[in-house]
Design a protein around this nucleic acid. Structure first.
Lengths: 253, 253
DNA sequence: ACGCATTTGTTCGTATGTATT
DNA sequence: TAATACATACGAACAAATGCG
């Protein structure tokens, strides 16, 4: 068997944390290539046959590894065409992270208005969440989303400054398409999954003004921590949603 | 080859809606057995080998069918023991439907207090959601969930009366464990998945009194429609959550 | 329009490993 | 220890979708 895979005659793979099935090892090798940028979002990865040859395992073993990566939404399989690196430029992917739906009518692409984009030292709470040193540089973005001209979402976003050098309000405004698409295309940071904590809160005065609601009006507070490869947190976001004609959709399954 | 599966020499399977892969056909046969109650929640289903013999296909094909059913949380595989019908009596399953977490401390089992359980004709909105005829009998339940003695959740639940004959406040109060566990054990109705619509609302006067908050206080409104086998809606639930020391957890992946 | 090569999808068979009883 | 059941791994063949010449 190949050099990479475990072997009954040569079990001395000192570095590995523990035993794991072959397909899991292949899976982590593929993940590493994704992480390193060997294959970029939207591109195809090598065919199953090629990967099998490269890793010196059977096609079925590669297949099982890819199956799991596809189930985790890191890869997308397309019969007859190949296997592609998932990208936030695709509609399907966007709806995984965009949960606010209008009460009536089809899902809408809301207008964006960037209110602020500055660099500042991370507050304690932010640095803790993003796992950067306290006081380290972060990018802070504030934006409004509007539906039919009326404000619906106020987002405050924090990003680690080290990963997003050169991010400005102009870059944000100029980019068409989802913000996560910009992040992956321009900064090589791909959001894989996120945890959210949702509450109902009353609007404070400045927020009420921005969202054009009465002070104290009930708003949905959505606190999101997003992760990239290797479960590294790379975005903290706090959104306030005005839900009188929109709702947050969730599917329990 | 069985009577149901397609065959290259005998493609005349008139009844089937369309062609589908063998393992999909096996999957739907297994689903049918689950639905009919041939294997009950918590029990094992026959081994892969036995099922392969029963359906006249290879073990690998049965395996792929079961893989998908396990991914959909209808079955649970346990190496060395067998494959089990999923049940709401298990902790893992419960947390798929129980999203409210305390800000501090471990997940808690909240106390329940049933305020009401009556039979009445379905209001238009309810009958539409549950897909029963307008005015048909439904069961309506109202309950409070308490954490450390303080009310946190007010639930209003509607069920199709035809499926839940004999459901009373006493049955509900007497049953230890999750309500969905009662439903599956006593009424043979298993909740498979659910759609939720979440908003922020202000507490009206009666609600404020029950939840011991000020009138107009922001509450999370969670409207849930739950489905059983075959995507049949069997529960409509509207919850109001007091989120000053709890939050609704969601994972985007 | 047709056929061919490529790629993923399905199905079978077999052998061996690991967990449970 | 032995039997059982799921898990992993390999190999092989054909089907279906796609794109190219």
């Amino acid at each position: 068997m190949g050099a990479t895979a475990s072997s009954s005659t040569d079990p001395a793979d000192a570095s590995a944390p523990a035993f794991s099935p072959l397909y899991q090892q292949i899976k982590s090798l593929i993940t590493r290539s994704l992480q390193s940028g060997e294959w970029k979002p939207g591109e195809t990865i090598p065919s199953e046959i090629e990967l099998a040859a490269r890793f010196r395992v059977s096609q079925g073993t590669v297949r099982k590894a890819i199956d799991e990566l596809a189930a985790e939404n890191l890869l997308v399989r397309r019969q007859g065409k190949g296997t592609f690196v998932a990208t936030h430029a695709e509609a399907r992917v966007q709806y995984r992270f965009l949960r606010l739906m209008p009460d009536a009518g089809p899902p809408e692409g809301m207008q964006r208005r960037f209110l602020d984009c500055r660099r500042l030292r991370a507050p304690a709470e932010v640095s803790r969440a993003l796992e950067v040193k306290s006081g380290e540089a972060t990018v802070q973005i504030r934006r409004l989303l509007l539906s039919k001209g009326r404000p619906v979402v106020l987002d405050d976003i924090w990003l680690p400054g080290a990963l997003f050098k050169g991010l400005t309000a102009e870059r944000l405004s100029g980019y068409q398409g989802p913000m996560y698409g910009l992040f992956e295309a321009e900064f090589g940071v791909r959001m894989i999954r996120a945890d959210e904590k949702i509450r109902a809160v009353g609007a404070d005065a400045p927020t009420a003004k921005l969202l054009e609601v009465a002070s104290g009006a009930p708003l949905l507070s959505v606190e999101r921590l997003s992760f990239t490869y290797g479960d590294r947190p790379v975005e903290l976001r706090r959104g306030l949603y005005e839900t009188s004609s929109h709702y947050y959709r969730n599917e329990l399954s």
